[in-house]
Amino acid sequence: MDYVQTLIMAFISVVLVNNLVLTKFLGICPYLGVSGRLDMAFGMGMAVTFVVTLAGTLTWLIDHLILMNPALEAYGLDVTRYVCFILVIAGAVQLVEMYLRKFFPTLYESFGIFLPLITTNCAILGLCLFLNLWDIHNFAQAVVLSFGAGIGFTIAICIMAGIRENLNMADVPKCLRGAPITLITAGLLTLAFMGFAGMIK
């Protein structure tokens, strides 16, 4: 029971308290660049969730089975950590792309340009690095955190898209239109998410 509780806590923590977008500034580019369309944002979020779960799990395995393996420690393999991580992510994205194109062509069409762009989404590499930084020694926890990070990203990007939909109708000062008002909105959102901090002890 304790074990399940830890996992649930980890999930809530990474979705709300340590939301990668709003507290760690990861994945800001798609977050700010997202058009004001909720369905597109949701699609993007789902694609990221899928890739980040896959990449997070794989990089955690590589990190623990190869790079931090005590038997191989003498070779100093951990210096290649970043190279390994980014190659795994790029590979995972390509795999997902090929798989979707072959088996779910409609889904592939709807993701469109998003898929290849996911490689350079900081949220994914960021999460892989944070798994390493947070000293996660437990496989299940690594998977849950990866999945949670994706969900957190989806929530953040959907909220943003929803706000932007309404922002189109607002009377914003001329010089603040476009990127500036988006940034200010994002700032207020982070303020709101700060309320979740301290929820998990």
Binding site: V17, N18, T23, W134, D135, A197, G198, I200, K201
Partner: peptide
């Protein structure tokens, strides 16, 4: 000594 803090370890 490690432990969970307000937002992070």
């Amino acid at each position: 000594g490690t432990g969970a803090g307000f937002a992070d370890k």
